[in-house]
Nucleic acid binder design. Sequence first.
RNA 1: UGGGGUGUAGCCAAGCGGCCUAAGGCACCGGGUUUUGAUCCCGGCAUUCGGAGGUUCGAAUCCUCCCACCCCAGCCA
Length: 558
Amino acid sequence: MSDQSAGTNFIRQIIDADLASGKHTDIVTRFPPEPNGHLHIGHAKSIWLNFGIARDYGGRCTLRYDDTNPLKEDEEFVEAIERDVRWLGYDIDRVAHASDYFDQLYEFALELIRKGLAYVDSLPADRIREFRGTLTEPGRNSPDRDNSVEKNLAEFERMRAGEYADGERVLRARIDMASPNINMRDPVIYRIRHHNHQRTGDHWCIYPMYDFTHGLSDAIEGVTHSLCTLEFEDHRPLYDWFIDNLTVPSRPRQTEFSRLNLGFTVMSKRLLTRLVDDGVMDGWDDPRMPTIAGLRRRGFTPASVRNFIASVGITRKDNLIDMLALENAVREDLDPVAPRAMAVLRPLRVIIENYPEGETETLEVPNHPKNPDMGSRPVTLSREIYIEQDDFMLDPPEKFFRLGPGREVRLRNAFVIRCVGLELDESGKVDTIRCKYLPETRSGVQPEGRRVKGIIHWVNAGDAVDVEVRLYDRLFLEAVPLPDDEGRFSRDLNPDSLEVLGNCKLEASLALAASETRYQFERLGYFWQDRDSTRDAPIFNRIVTLRDSWAKIDSRNN
RNA sequence: UGGGGUGUAGCCAAGCGGCCUAAGGCACCGGGUUUUGAUCCCGGCAUUCGGAGGUUCGAAUCCUCCCACCCCAGCCA
């Protein structure tokens, strides 16, 4: 794995201290997704942390599905989750499910009841809510709170046996209805769900809640450091309460860190699901999605995602990370290895008047400007070529050193040309540019005799490959998009987040483009083939643009 | 107005009482190299650490008060 240094963070410091004090000799972590959706780059932070720590400390990290709610979960997501974790570069040597522990969890519940620390409550959901109190007022005890152990045991057995309908009974921990921490006000730990579970089928009709399940699963697995996000901080007293009051095989410790927030996108599973279900996105792997699947399809590399996470670090502070940091990470990863090629996205025809009709020549062009080991390829030049529309201006402003009437520019890897005329179409738009080339300026000939400031890319018309290119921009107009009550984005969506260009011209060598290769189309950005691509109809995704200081100057002028 | 957190540059983030007149990255601004306005290279970018007091020979680091922001009232995770 070619990663930048993982550096340190407060969690690693805790682990170092635990190792130094002898509290632990082996480090065990876990990555605990709920199989109810696809992983996104926020999960990548957790994966990087948990798997990265296990790897660096010679410990192990379990992929554990938190599958305690059969209503929301589906096996369909399991495969996708594992694929995403592997794609990020981590070996999954241990897969577990919270549901593997349902028997033990049930025994733990019995132990709690026997100790007088849990009771079956017959209050309906709305009454439980009422009795819970508010943030500022204490709650009240349920009439069932002081029922005998025997009665609770019997009632719990009836719950398990299916004698009650959903919602008729719950098992609650008996803690403190007056606690300022609402999580400690006799939280529900088992509820009835007459619903098939994706793994245990109809074996159970009662299912444990997250708070009860999570910490105890950690204890069962011997997890030493249970790393989760900040919103679980208030749950830690409860996490510890279960560990303290039950006969557990180990004592894990929960530590929280802040989740990853990226500007101009959303990270909530609910909102992402909404975008997919409403058809705003072309599926979970739409290249504009912040999902792992989306990043993968877009063309981001696993190393770039890892390095990005490493660069933003692990802390307890709320954050809003600039997308530019992610873009920087891919460019950094791709620049030294991406083979270069020439492609024209918005073609403008150029006739080289003094180039003999019917003739062609072959130029040998390096695949990488700094790495000769990457070899070279033949590129054809003839009388008719395409250049980028953006590289020609009728009335160029100062500092624009590309082509314009009477101007000279170098065709990258080839000759200098001078614009000597142009043809307009009926609408008055420039249709064709007429140029003359300077044969003595052939690329590689020293001395060149003539230096021009502008260099533009081009594609030979005769053997160009026609392709579709998809350009992506930020999904939203606002750094922090605001959904409406239904979770839809009526106004913050960026209408131009996807631009499809149909008539793009690629140099002939890319007719054989490898589907796994990420190319740099010179002066444009990094591209690779979309999964929709076929041999007859190639489609390229723009992963990210190159840095563009001209664009900066240009936008400053406007 | 209860409880739990967080505040170091535009965005991240080191820093853990004295080598801090505060690392590093992104962004930004110069300048150099360059047949990608890319890459690369050099330089700039917080006398100041949310604010006010205090302790100390010495504070971003300790104490007090204040301010701002985030999280919590699912039989979700």
